[in-house]
């Protein structure tokens, strides 16, 4: 049976227990699925599951984000579709004790791969997309203007290309069979390369990237770990840490402290990078942090619920510092 059919059946089964289930449905075109809140049985048929279902629903969980937003009440129970990478976000939030395990049901989706639209856009003009079909390790893409066959490896998200945890690490129900993980080797390639360049080049590179930031804070709002809400110092006037101007330096500073606030917590889900409307490679910054955390503390965020995030603890004798 198709994974989607199993999912639909499972949603039908758990729907009486929960207030709603968050899954994916069709968006304005085939490349842009949209989060879908299923609260009635008739809505289940609209659920979809394909290479483009990418949103990290863990983001809807932290109470500071949802309760004041009236999204759902504190005591409500929800179900959500969770990919391998998203499950790490959930574990991270559980570790921080910001969410509680008995308030949601996880429908774990083993995930083969997701297509990075930013990479796909470089290959073909996806504004006029008509169809996208995967066969083997290639994809046939048809737009209004042209038709192309593209190697899947060239258009997968980096996190998928080196996906170590394609199967959810935490779930109530696993939908379909598990898939094989890929090798992590090479995941930090772009970070390694960037470290090697000179300081001047680094500066001018970030200068160029942050020049086009519009300070929409989508990176922050899309991040499951960013739940400071009103208290985010990016906008507070008291304390007044950062100017509201859109000078490149202020935008870079914002991203620096946002990133560092996620040090040891970031699970490399890549949502910040994906949602950026102007394509700033934020995940490169986040990856640098996860790389350092891995090197210094031999720790991966969101893998084991029992561990304490590395910057919230210490060792008297550090293994890799000193």
């Amino acid at each position: 049976m198709d994974r989607l059919d199993i999912l639909k059946e499972k949603v039908k089964e758990i729907l009486p227990e929960v207030d709603f289930v968050i899954g994916y449905s069709k968006g304005f075109d085939i490349l842009h699925p949209s989060p879908y809140f299923v609260s009635e049985e008739r809505q289940i048929r609209n659920l979809i599951w394909d290479e483009f279902c990418i949103n990290n629903f863990a983001n809807y969980l932290p109470p500071p984000k949802r309760v004041p937003n009236g999204l759902f009440k504190q005591d409500e129970k929800i179900g959500l579709v969770v990919k391998g990478c998203d499950s790490r976000s959930i574990i991270q939030l559980l570790q921080e004790e910001i969410i509680f395990r008995d308030t949601f049901i996880i429908l774990g989706m083993p995930c083969e791969m997701k297509i990075d639209l930013k990479k796909l856009r470089e290959k073909i003009d996806i504004d006029y997309i008509q169809s996208f079909n995967v066969s083997g390790d290639k994809a046939e893409v048809k737009t209004l203007l042209e038709k192309k066959t593209i190697n899947l490896d060239e258009i997968l998200y980096d996190k998928c290309l080196y996906c170590k945890y394609p199967n959810p690490l935490i779930y109530d129900y696993l939908i379909g069979d598990k898939v094989n993980p890929r090798s992590r080797e090479g995941f930090y390639k772009d970070v390694d390369e960037f470290e090697m360049i000179s300081n001047e080049e680094k500066i001018s590179c970030w200068e160029k990237e942050f020049d086009r930031c519009i300070r929409c804070y989508a990176c922050r709002e899309a991040c499951p770990n960013c739940y400071c809400q009103y208290q985010c110092i990016a906008q507070t006037r008291r304390p007044h840490w950062i100017s509201q101007s859109t000078e490149t330096i202020d935008k870079k500073f914002f991203q620096m402290f946002r990133a560092f606030h996620n040090a040891g917590r970031c699970t490399d889900c890549g949502e910040c990078d994906r949602v950026c409307p102007v394509g700033i490679p934020i995940s490169k910054i986040m990856k640098k942090l996860t790389k350092e955390v891995l090197r210094l503390f031999n720790y991966e965020a969101g893998v084991d619920e029992k561990l304490i995030p590395p910057l919230m603890t210490y060792k008297r004798e550090e293994d890799n510092i000193g």
Binding site: P35, N69, L71, A218, E221, V275
Partner: peptide, 17 residues
């Protein structure tokens, strides 16, 4: 309105573009 906007992330993209 709740149903129509429950998926919104409260970011500023729509207003800034």
């Amino acid at each position: 309105w709740k149903n129509a906007t429950s998926k919104c992330l409260s970011c500023g993209i729509c207003t800034y573009v």
